[in-house]
Amino acid sequence: MLDVRGIKKVYESKDRTVEAVRDLTFTLQAGELACLVGPSGCGKTTLLKIMSGLLEPTSGEVLLEGKRVEGPPPGMAVVFQEYGRSLFPWMTVRENVELPLKQKKLAAARRTELVEESLAAVGLAEAHAAYPWQLSGGMQQRVAIARAVAYEPHVLLMDEPFAAVDAQTRADLEDLIRDLWHKFQVTTLFVTHDIDEAVYLGQRVLILSNSPTVIRDDLAVDLPDQRDQLTTRSSPRFAELRARVYEQIHRAKTPAAEPVGAGATALPTSADHGSTEF
């Protein structure tokens, strides 16, 4: 479905070179809900931009349904962290959701149907005529999610979408993501730095190392399919999985404590040395 093969990204500026992503390879199966978790500043956003065709990798390639991604592919929707900046402030909620559908040249009736369905699905059936900035942060992010869902993407990428909302809203939005995923069966990659969130949401958690980034672990989450904030999060299995992810991330952050399996990086600026250990 979505293949990421040997992605490497090196940023070069006049006086320094930063290897943001070293070598990333993984595959998403159709209909999967996977979470990508890693320490802050580990190149998650870079990776996501490469996957969505917004950024060229230095080497490697991304394949969506067997086709190489060069520029944003039509079957993909992205939800960004900065909801306040990803909605068009001069358009109403309805217009925001409808715009990509117009661009897809869908008939008006079909557009209306999709807009209403997706706004209802995110619990904003009443907010069609409002402007995004009249809504709370959580509601704005719901609009962005509705826009992505209405687009009927084959793959949905989410870049730390809840990092800027408060805890209660965040829990609601997490459940919303699970619901939407059940309902629309979209292949979803959810990027986060929050370990609990990753374990709670995903069928699978991909753990990234510190920059320059590689995959440290690929963990199947064997929690029951119906999850809820209270029972799932207090289950022993959740705690185990969470501990395992935490341990990996913690080790990623303190490379000294680890049996180094990687060659020293060519990076003069980064104190952290990555590891190729899986």
Binding site: Y11, E12, R16
Partner: peptide, 13 residues
Amino acid sequence: PVSDTSAALPRAP
């Protein structure tokens, strides 16, 4: 009117 400070990373050359 709107800031564009998101590009914390150096631009790809």
